[in-house]
Computed example of a mutant assay.
Amino acid sequence: MGEASDAARSVVAQFRRDGFVAPESAERAEFEVWDRVTPGRVLLVALQILLRLREEDGRTDLGRPVPGLDEEEAGLLVRTLLGDAAAAPETSRRDLITLDRLLGLLASVIAEESLSEEAVDALLEAAEESCLAVGPWDERDDRRPQSGELVDLGGLLVPTEPGLKIELMPSRQDGSLVGVTLIRGRTAIQLQAFRALGDTSWASVREDLARTMRGRGGSAEERVGPAGTELQAVVRIQGPPGKDRQTARVLGHDGPGWILRGFVTGVGAEPDSTEEWSYATFQGTVVRPPSAPSATDPLIRLRWPESGI
């Protein structure tokens, strides 16, 4: 087993034995640390794998009680982990996605499925492999896939395909390129990369964004999507009454020393959308941090591609 999945196994074993999360297990899990593959991340993905397998068999109801959750809360958490956009806001409001509740749900499903220790080990190994195989990527990471065509924009290398429209976004202050918008059909995703200065993370950026959106008369709710925790939002835009709001999804990822943000609009941002293109584009993006970064400027600048757009 890998280091993260091995540690995750110890956390699961302790919880199944004692029925609670010991302090050393909580520390070992490093839950909510997303800039690398941690035991907590492996546990979350392992639970999602199990739930999706059960869903494919037509089984979404739980046959056992879950420690720390009543039946309605457990069902809400299951639907959220399966990507139900309607369940996610209430799950976030109740703060149901915690390490102890996820472990309780995982232990209940393992018991219901009568999984052997060997099967649990294989599940955790598969979850770790799944974590390692998903971007966005740092250019220096030799694990990143080498397949697929990318457009080199300097600070970002973004996936492209025939018919894709690419628009670079200049800064209002100095005209330097600070972002790129990719448009496919009726969906667009704007990508920007930032250096993670101080204790900045996607979690802190997400919290600030949600506060700003609500302060400007919009709405923002956290949900769990294919790229991790995201915001499902309605933002205020310039326009006549009735056309002054826009639905958006805001994706984010913590890399080694950087944060990538994706702002999805159009059809792919609607709450009931199952479109995968924006997520595939976000997770296929490669970040190239500057070799001589500014001490104060967090933006990772872009440039026009040598071959044009």
Rank of each mutant, 00 (worst) to 15 (best):
L260V: 08
I97V: 15
R54P: 02
R143Q: 13
R59K: 14
S201A: 13
E73D: 14
R36C: 05
D61F: 08
D70R: 11
D35W: 15
Q14C: 08
R236I: 07
G198C: 06
G225M: 13
A292V: 07
L81Y: 05
I259A: 04
G242N: 10
T281K: 00
A107I: 04
V109E: 01
R216Q: 12
E71I: 01
Q146D: 13
C131I: 00
A126F: 04
L209T: 00
R172S: 14
A210R: 07
L209Q: 11
I237W: 09
A111E: 15
G148W: 09
D272I: 03
T296C: 01
A295E: 15
G68E: 05
T80H: 13
I97P: 00
L115R: 13
L96Y: 03
P241V: 06
L302C: 05
P23T: 10
E222S: 13
D272A: 14
A220M: 06
Q173S: 11
L156D: 02
R16H: 04
I237E: 11
Q173F: 12
L123W: 05
P145W: 12
R211C: 01
S273Y: 05
P293I: 11
D272C: 02
R41C: 00
G163S: 09
L105V: 06
G75C: 07
A133V: 04
L299D: 08
L156Q: 04
E32R: 15
E27W: 07
L44E: 14
I49Y: 00
V37S: 04
R223E: 11
R195F: 00
V224M: 15
A133D: 14
L103D: 01
D272Y: 09
L164E: 06
E24G: 03
E270P: 01
D208H: 09
E161F: 01
G40N: 06
L302T: 01
E161A: 15
T80N: 14
A122I: 01
D199L: 12
I259M: 12
S278G: 06
R140H: 13
V21M: 10
G2F: 14
D57P: 00
A13W: 04
V234C: 10
A133Y: 07
R249W: 03
E113I: 01
E72N: 07
R223G: 15
L123P: 01
T38V: 04
S92R: 08
L81R: 02
F194H: 12
S116R: 10
D174W: 04
F31Y: 15
P240D: 12
S116F: 10
V286C: 09
L251W: 08
L231M: 08
L43R: 02
V42L: 10
D70N: 15
A7I: 12
L231F: 06
A220L: 07
L81G: 03
V11S: 00
F194R: 11
E129S: 13
G40R: 02
D141S: 07
R28K: 13
Q173G: 00
S25W: 00
R206A: 09
E90G: 02
D100V: 06
